[in-house]
């Protein structure tokens, strides 16, 4: 008892501080570092890429192309409406500046300058110049954290846009990602464009991802190709956040499908692909 009291007299302040700091650290961990990222955003504010740069990026030529694209998209939508009879209005995206990179070496994340106050919620989809960048996994009032496609835990349901061969891509911490197919003999060749598939739960379909650069079709258990991402994840400065809710997919033909069971983890995309006999 006496020893305890002596210890207390000697270390009361230290012990109190340690407990306080530990509680603060725990609550910070649970909030996903929101306080730190808010502070980070405030500190780095003078260095954010400014609107002049944005204007430079969106040069008049790009704007012209965009206008044509909008025109084509609307035509496409109306044609699709005629064929399929359903309409899915495209949501407006929020532009955001990239203000930081992943705080740990084992993660592939970026920090962007928009947060909950700009209407961003977790699971929103992030695209950039070149295509898919990733998805929002944590939000603080004025910043959010994006899990990049290149993160090893990120899985995106994808398909070859030419042949519609489906599979999923998995990040490997670099500009190149690996795509695995559900078919044993997929129709794929070098140079094919890869987009998100319609069976992806976490991403809307038809967002460009990258281009096939190498084939390894003999690989067991599933054939595998290497895909070079078109969005330059290492140097991307501006991204667009598209609101998106994860959805449940109703498979067109459940009997004939190969159910790919993928663990339900943060960043993984449960994909179910159709199988051509």
């Amino acid at each position: 008892m006496f020893a305890l009291r002596r210890w207390w007299n000697q270390y009361a302040l230290k012990a109190g501080l340690v407990v306080l700091v530990m509680i603060a650290a725990l609550s910070m961990r649970d909030s996903g570092g929101a306080v730190i990222y808010e502070m980070y955003r405030w500190v780095t504010r003078p260095f954010h890429p400014g609107p002049s740069r944005e204007a430079m990026l969106q040069s008049s030529y790009a704007q012209e192309l965009q206008q044509r694209l909008v025109e084509l998209e609307s035509q496409n939508r109306s044609l699709r409406q005629i064929v399929e009879g359903d309409s899915s209005p495209a949501d407006e995206g929020t532009p955001a500046a990239v203000i930081g990179r992943s705080a740990g070496d084992w993660w592939q994340q970026i920090i962007i300058s928009r947060g909950a106050q700009d209407g961003i919620t977790p699971d929103d989809v992030v695209t950039g110049p070149g295509g898919l960048v990733g998805r929002v996994i944590a939000v603080s009032p004025n910043s959010s954290r994006v899990l990049l496609v290149s993160d090893p835990t990120s899985r995106v349901g994808a398909r070859i846009s030419r042949s519609r061969a489906t599979g999923y891509i998995q990040g490997s911490m670099g500009q190149q990602v690996v795509m695995e197919f559900f078919d044993k003999i997929p129709d794929v060749k070098v140079g094919d464009v890869v987009t998100t598939s319609a069976y992806s739960k976490l991403f809307p379909q038809d967002i460009p991802i990258g281009r096939v650069v190498a084939l390894d079709l003999a690989k067991s258990p599933a054939p595998e190709v290497t895909v070079e991402l078109t969005a330059p994840l290492g140097i991307v400065e501006w991204v667009e956040v598209i609101p998106f809710e994860p959805r449940d997919i109703t498979m067109p033909e459940t009997r004939d499908t190969l159910q790919e069971v993928i663990p339900n983890r943060e960043g993984t995309d449960a994909v179910e692909g159709d199988r051509t006999p």
Partner: peptide, 21 residues
């Protein structure tokens, strides 16, 4: 060790819970 643990918690908050720092 105590300070290392606290810093590890902070770092986990910035990245993700697994693998933990």
């Amino acid at each position: 060790a105590i300070v290392g643990f606290i810093l590890g918690l902070v770092h986990d908050g910035l990245t993700g819970y697994f693998p933990t720092h």
